[in-house]
Amino acid sequence: MTATQARRRVRIGVLSTEHMHAASYIRLLAKMPGVELIGVWDADPEHAGAAAKLAGTRALPTPEDLLSMVDGVVITSTNVDHRELTERAAAAGADVLCDKPLAITVADAKAIVEACDRAGVRLMTAFPMRFSPVIRSLESSVRSGSLGSVVCLEGVNSSRMPNNLAPWFVDPARSGGGALMDHVVHLADLYRWILRDEVVEVYAVANRILHERFDRVETGGLVMLRFAGGVFATIDCSWSKPRSYPTWGGLSIDAIGTAGVIRADAFRQRLAVYGGPGAGVAWPSWGPDEDQGTLDEFVAAVSQRRPPAVSGVDGLRAVEIVAAAYRSIETGAPVKLAT
């Protein structure tokens, strides 16, 4: 490869491997022809080393060591660390793809957006479901009017409790919360995108009964949203799948319109495999990989010096909805959001 060709490739690094999404992103980045995977940093050098080795890249001792060599960075840390790492990336002039939720408070999410604006770097929130062909098909049906006008969206984003993959998910100081913090942002963002509208009211309930009454964070939650244009929408964000469930969980949307109903199940395309490793049945996916679409969009935005299709403000809006959901749980009543 000539030096010119190498320079054309977008130089990407990964900050933190604490989120399990890191493994998927690193594996995909290493295979992308337009990407030069510069390296991986993690607060735990052993984790960084192991992740780097898997992808044939190197581990860097500090974030700045990595940031000085990249065009853009993927942040897959604990939720609470998103702000500090994004601010350091912005200060170093690196574009940012930050995992969801963008932050655990509205103030942190605003600070992240402002830091990137001030530094003039691109900020993309990682909402991979925007790149799911299943969800994109639903979105285009809604946009084309084949559903008539939409009156209601019902979504389910439920899963196992993810603490076996990363224990910090159930440590509120690092995750910011439980099932609501983990899952509401995905569907909230998809609804905003599908409807091209903003949420004006949020109602939510939650409990701590699932998983033998695990009580450090909420494990069950239901949310009802109202959009400015009148559509109402619900989200089941519960960690309601037991460990023995054949897959991690899923995400689906039922869109109810004046011309009928469309159901989109983003993870229905899977096999049922019996007798594999472990007991019982497994449901490995043969469907599309939405993480690849997310990375493609980020790399294209960095390379073409254009805004990414999913913005930092999209991440901020989703965090505002989550914060309103927690306020609603406290008050037991719907909470209004300023538009």
């Binding site: 006008s149 009964i209 009802m224």
Partner: peptide, 22 residues
């Protein structure tokens, strides 16, 4: 919510005394 739409669909969220939600 959409009286002119000619479509009927309703969703309720319940909180039970046990703490369960529906």
């Amino acid at each position: 919510e959409h009286p002119g739409a000619g479509v009927d669909h309703a969703v309720a969220i319940l909180t039970h005394a046990s703490g369960a939600i529906s």
